[in-house]
Design a protein around this nucleic acid. Structure first.
Lengths: 196, 196
DNA sequence: GGTATAAGTAAACAGTGTTGACTTGTCAAG
DNA sequence: CTTGACAAGTCAACACTGTTTACTTATACC
């Protein structure tokens, strides 16, 4: 019964892996352009040229499809790897450029579904492992996770407000000044001294 | 045909207003305890002892019901009315106490549905009129709205992270220190000087 | 008391995510 | 080359969702 383990091409017919990839690719494309809630399972299946039931067969549920899509992408590509001192500025630049350019596809997918109760566990895992965890590691020191959590709040918050408000207010500031401002805010999140 | 305008009790049968209030009360209760997405129209109607179709008759759509629910409550009760200097601390205390106590019912309803595309317009109006607007007025000066928008980002972001993560990381800090910290962060949002 | 008119109702619509029973293609053994 | 097993793929249904339409019924005025 475990004859598939030797070569990898044993009990396979009609190419399971290719079908999986096709579904995943369609989901990524549709989720990132229209958001999780607006894209139905049947539409993803149709786009992939595949039967709807295969989504649940291969990914358990629609939720699992999003989980796999967002797991594929790095949250902060090349940002946490660097000196701690420049971290606020690098993060600020990342956020502002995402904000102005309409965001990376993944970021948009996340912002679309930030509060969806059905996706709480997906976002929870992502937030802890890909955002707060790496940030806390660079930050170091006591209460690193709390500080990382604050930084994450700012980043997610700016994304959320941008998505709700269309960045109307934020665009009052020139991009460069916005980066300066945001770097200062993130810096305040990281500050160690107790003000009181 | 306008005979209802003289006394207020003319063309009314079976008490339209009472029914409206009953629906609204049920919606408020269910939305705030379980979130917008998890509560169906039929459940609200059943809870109110009313026919489902009346929700759409009186509120246009389920969306309209939430809009009316959140419109009833003040976003920052007694916080924007005060001196500008103490604003960051008052906001920080508000956010932290909401965070630790599980949030006001309304805040939870909002956090539950922050990214829902169907509710974008509802949240947009609320954010502009009840959050960014009043904040910008207290803040004053040039780019007041941009600064207010940043503050709103921090507040919404903290709520969102708390909701996703269960406040696990944020609770590493004692409440008092968290207030200090958050006040500093919000203060940085309001700072006018260009750092560069 | 009859009647217009509003309030309230029931049933259907088109859509969702998900599931279980079914068919079919493919590969290995006889 | 046929046969059988098993996985891949299909189909139709399920229990929901929000919303609309045509309908019934109770009320307040003439």
């Amino acid at each position: 019964m475990e004859r598939a383990e030797d070569g990898g091409c044993a009990g396979r017919a009609r190419d399971r892996e290719a079908t999986r990839r096709r579904i995943l690719a369609s989901a990524r494309e549709l989720f990132t352009s229209e958001g999780y809630a607006k894209v139905s399972s049947r539409r993803i299946a149709a786009h992939a040229g595949v039967n709807v039931a295969l989504i649940n067969r291969y990914f358990g549920a629609k939720r699992g499809l999003l989980a796999e899509v967002i797991a594929e992408e790095a949250a902060f590509p090349g940002i946490v790897e660097g000196d701690r001192e420049g971290l606020p500025r690098r993060l600020a630049e990342h956020v502002v450029h995402r904000t102005l350019a309409g965001g990376t596809p993944l970021a948009r997918a996340l912002e679309h579904s930030a509060g969806d109760p059905d996706l709480k566990s997906v976002h929870e895992e992502r937030l802890k492992n890909a955002v707060i965890g790496p940030l806390a590691e660079v930050i170091g020191g006591p209460e690193a996770r709390a500080r990382a959590s604050l930084v994450a709040s700012v980043i997610l918050g700016v994304g959320l407000v941008r998505r709700i408000e269309g960045a109307a207010s934020l665009n009052e500031l020139e991009p460069d000044r916005l980066v300066d401002h945001l770097a200062a805010v993130i810096g305040a999140c990281l500050a160690e001294g107790a003000p009181g």
